[in-house]
Measured scan of single mutants.
Amino acid sequence: NSASGPLPDGWEQAMTQDGEIYYINHKNKTTSWLDPRLDPRFAMNQR
């Protein structure tokens, strides 16, 4: 992992069949290639 600590509440790390890691936001029912622990847009929304 490139980030430390647990994923934010509602997020899950998953892997594609090709072995690529992505992240699932169960609250918004969206997915992201960016780790939410590193995404400044997500961090701003949590303050």
Rank of each mutant, 00 (worst) to 15 (best):
residue 3 A to Q: 14
residue 6 P to K: 13
residue 22 Y to A: 01
residue 43 A to M: 13
residue 31 T to L: 01
residue 15 M to G: 04
residue 31 T to A: 06
residue 26 H to M: 09
residue 8 P to T: 11
residue 25 N to E: 01
residue 23 Y to H: 01
residue 5 G to V: 12
residue 30 T to F: 03
residue 4 S to P: 04
residue 1 N to C: 01
residue 11 W to N: 01
residue 43 A to H: 10
residue 36 P to F: 01
residue 37 R to K: 05
residue 43 A to E: 14
residue 33 W to I: 03
residue 47 R to P: 05
residue 1 N to D: 06
residue 18 D to Y: 08
residue 22 Y to D: 01
residue 7 L to S: 05
residue 14 A to N: 14
residue 24 I to F: 03
residue 27 K to S: 10
residue 17 Q to K: 13
residue 11 W to I: 04
residue 14 A to I: 04
residue 3 A to I: 15
residue 25 N to I: 00
residue 29 K to A: 12
residue 30 T to A: 12
residue 32 S to L: 00
residue 13 Q to H: 05
residue 10 G to S: 07
residue 22 Y to N: 01
residue 6 P to L: 11
residue 24 I to N: 03
residue 35 D to K: 06
residue 34 L to I: 13
residue 24 I to P: 00
residue 11 W to Q: 01
residue 31 T to N: 02
residue 32 S to T: 15
residue 11 W to P: 00
residue 44 M to S: 10
residue 32 S to R: 01
residue 4 S to C: 09
residue 10 G to C: 06
residue 14 A to P: 00
residue 10 G to D: 11
residue 47 R to Y: 09
residue 12 E to Q: 09
residue 45 N to Q: 07
residue 5 G to D: 08
residue 40 P to F: 14
residue 47 R to L: 07
residue 2 S to M: 10
residue 44 M to W: 11
residue 4 S to Y: 09
residue 37 R to C: 04
residue 16 T to F: 02
residue 47 R to Q: 04
residue 11 W to V: 05
residue 27 K to P: 07
residue 1 N to L: 00
residue 30 T to G: 04
residue 17 Q to P: 13
residue 6 P to G: 10
residue 20 E to V: 03
residue 15 M to N: 12
residue 13 Q to E: 13
residue 11 W to F: 03
residue 8 P to M: 07
residue 12 E to T: 05
residue 12 E to L: 04
residue 28 N to G: 14
residue 20 E to R: 05
residue 28 N to Q: 11
residue 1 N to H: 00
residue 16 T to G: 03
residue 32 S to W: 02
residue 38 L to E: 13
residue 20 E to T: 04
residue 4 S to W: 06
residue 2 S to C: 14
residue 13 Q to C: 07
residue 42 F to I: 11
residue 16 T to V: 02
residue 28 N to K: 10
residue 10 G to Q: 07
residue 22 Y to Q: 02
residue 4 S to L: 09
residue 23 Y to E: 00
residue 41 R to F: 15
residue 10 G to E: 08
residue 1 N to F: 03
residue 6 P to H: 07
residue 3 A to L: 09
residue 4 S to M: 08
residue 45 N to C: 09
residue 5 G to M: 10
residue 45 N to I: 09
residue 35 D to A: 04
residue 47 R to V: 07
residue 33 W to P: 02
